[in-house]
């Protein structure tokens, strides 16, 4: 029987939680020999919503999309460095659109076996307005999902990886 996890995707969104998720995913890839993909979504859907709601000016739309592109590059390069230090190769991917849809589409397209995401907020709201895009993606993807918690423990695990 082949390994049940051959392709892992870690979702990077510019938060510390997603960097911790990347450290955990690197450990998992090292232990399992699975291929590792890091995905960043430039949330152009949200920026368009903000323009429509008049919270953003047109110039802000352009500026924030540019900032998110720079963030994507920087965070993907950072997790790539984290992986290379442990001898792991990462495929970096970035796309534009709705976070939930882009993650689900990437999982399907690349036939991902496991999606790794950072810790979700511990405070929950029953109000629909406060849904978390990553939480939505977790519910809609076709593969299994792993939520990474305890950044100190994960950092120790990553550090101890040879």
């Amino acid at each position: 029987m082949s390994s049940p996890i051959e392709k892992i995707m870690v979702y990077i969104d510019g938060t510390e939680q997603s960097v911790t998720a990347a450290q955990y995913a690197i450990c998992l890839a090292s232990f399992s020999g699975a291929e590792l993909v890091a995905q960043y979504v430039i949330n152009t859907r949200a920026v368009e919503d903000l323009l429509r709601a008049s919270i953003f000016l047109k110039e802000e739309q352009v500026e924030y999309e540019h900032d998110m592109e720079a963030d994507a590059e920087r965070y993907l390069n950072y997790v790539n460095e984290l992986a290379l230090k442990k001898g792991i190769t990462i495929t970096k991917r970035q796309s534009r659109g709705s976070v939930n849809k882009e993650i689900a589409d990437a999982v399907a397209e690349l036939q991902i076996d496991l999606l790794v995401i950072g810790e979700l907020s511990r405070i929950r709201s029953r109000r629909d307005e406060f849904y978390d895009e990553t939480e939505r993606a977790m519910r809609s993807v076709s593969c299994s999902v792993l939520i990474v918690k305890d950044e100190d423990k994960v950092w120790e695990m990553y550090q101890s990886l040879v």
Partner: peptide, 20 residues
């Protein structure tokens, strides 16, 4: 400035809230 993604996501939630 280096956290545009989370910033945009939070503003988008406020935009949704403002509709209610």
């Amino acid at each position: 400035p280096g956290q545009a993604g989370p910033h945009v996501a939070a503003l988008a939630e406020i935009a949704k809230l403002a509709r209610s």
